[in-house]
Computed example of a mutant assay.
Amino acid sequence: MADPIRVLVTGAAGQIAYSLLYSIAKGDVFGKDQPLILLLLDITPMLPVLDGVVMELQDCALPLLREVVPTDKEEVAFKDLDAAILVGSMPRKEGMERKDLLKANVAIFKSQGAALDKYAKKTVKVLVVGNPANTNCLITAKSAPSIPKENFSCLTRLDHNRARSQVAMRCGIPADNVRNVIIWGNHSSTQYPDVHHCKVSVKGEDKPAFDVVKDDTWLKGDFISTVQQRGAAVIKARKLSSAMSAAKAICDHMRDIWTGTAEGEFVSMGVYSSGNSYGVPDDLIYSFPVTIKNKTWKIVEGLEINDFSRAKMEATAAELVEERDTAISFLAV
């Protein structure tokens, strides 16, 4: 068997982590023959809860899980990491301005980026989940200058899965018959779920989504707003944020980084923009369609972008630029 890899989950006493840890520990993400050591980081008041999570992981008797390390110390959590899944963040509280939320999270992710820089392997793959995920990811990457920016990504796979599922339900087919939906931009209500390049498999034949759905008004209207507002809809119904679906998306995202995307298929990930793709400004973490091979992502280039799509892609980019500039003003403090 291979040597164990070291995998960190932050916010490890929270509800997303509770849905996530079992899947990681049993081999759904890094492979069925890959032993691992789980590092679980949370704030000091959550350590008693974390002890309960550790007991449950032990009680699962999972053959791949070699060790579980609960901690509130960054120097322990970030040591020699192969993968980091940064779930923990400051949630938005009632009456809190977005600016206040950004300020609180800049402090968290600046610190975690510095810890990655100091303690983790330079090959570490970092996935930022805690919101605002794109900007938190950018701050983390900026705070870890010795780790390549290409090693950082943020989660828009949940939105990707939501879009895929909406199209599948509309067509009355399984979700895996729908591929190459795209989430452009920010993991926020300005994101643009795009099906202009989506393929739907009907009786073994791939067809454009617009031809199969046969309802352009829905695809350009309610479909987009449903995906954009899905997180808020879940909170309204459950009185809690998405946990099961977020955990599944995290697994999908990290598994694709580790093992690659299928031939002819692309997925959505928030990745570093160098300003060369689709007119998106540089120095943003922006969700693009990507393919992955040998643990390296590549933006899918050359897709035709119509005026409808262009306007929505620019709107979400503008929000990200504003978020970035606000966050960077706090970074200097």
Score class of each variant (00 low, 15 high):
residue 4 P to K: 05
residue 5 I to G: 01
residue 6 R to Y: 06
residue 11 G to H: 10
residue 11 G to F: 00
residue 15 Q to R: 15
residue 16 I to N: 01
residue 18 Y to Q: 15
residue 18 Y to E: 15
residue 22 Y to G: 06
residue 26 K to L: 12
residue 28 D to P: 12
residue 33 D to G: 13
residue 37 I to T: 14
residue 38 L to F: 01
residue 40 L to T: 11
residue 41 L to K: 10
residue 49 V to Q: 14
residue 55 M to Q: 14
residue 56 E to T: 15
residue 57 L to N: 07
residue 65 L to I: 10
residue 66 R to V: 07
residue 73 K to P: 05
residue 75 E to L: 10
residue 77 A to N: 11
residue 79 K to C: 07
residue 80 D to G: 13
residue 85 I to W: 00
residue 86 L to S: 04
residue 86 L to K: 02
residue 88 G to Y: 00
residue 93 K to E: 12
residue 93 K to T: 13
residue 101 L to T: 06
residue 118 K to M: 08
residue 133 A to C: 10
residue 138 L to T: 04
residue 149 K to S: 03
residue 154 C to E: 00
residue 159 D to M: 14
residue 165 S to D: 08
residue 167 V to H: 03
residue 171 C to N: 02
residue 173 I to A: 07
residue 174 P to K: 04
residue 176 D to V: 09
residue 187 H to S: 13
residue 190 T to D: 03
residue 191 Q to Y: 00
residue 199 K to Q: 06
residue 205 E to W: 03
residue 206 D to P: 05
residue 211 D to M: 11
residue 213 V to T: 05
residue 215 D to C: 12
residue 224 I to A: 08
residue 225 S to Y: 04
residue 230 R to T: 05
residue 235 I to M: 15
residue 237 A to G: 08
residue 237 A to D: 09
residue 242 S to I: 13
residue 243 A to W: 07
residue 248 K to P: 02
residue 252 D to T: 14
residue 254 M to F: 11
residue 255 R to W: 02
residue 256 D to Q: 15
residue 260 G to D: 00
residue 267 V to N: 05
residue 269 M to D: 04
residue 274 S to R: 10
residue 274 S to Y: 10
residue 280 V to F: 02
residue 281 P to F: 12
residue 295 K to C: 10
residue 299 I to M: 10
residue 302 G to S: 09
residue 304 E to C: 07
residue 307 D to F: 01
residue 333 V to M: 11
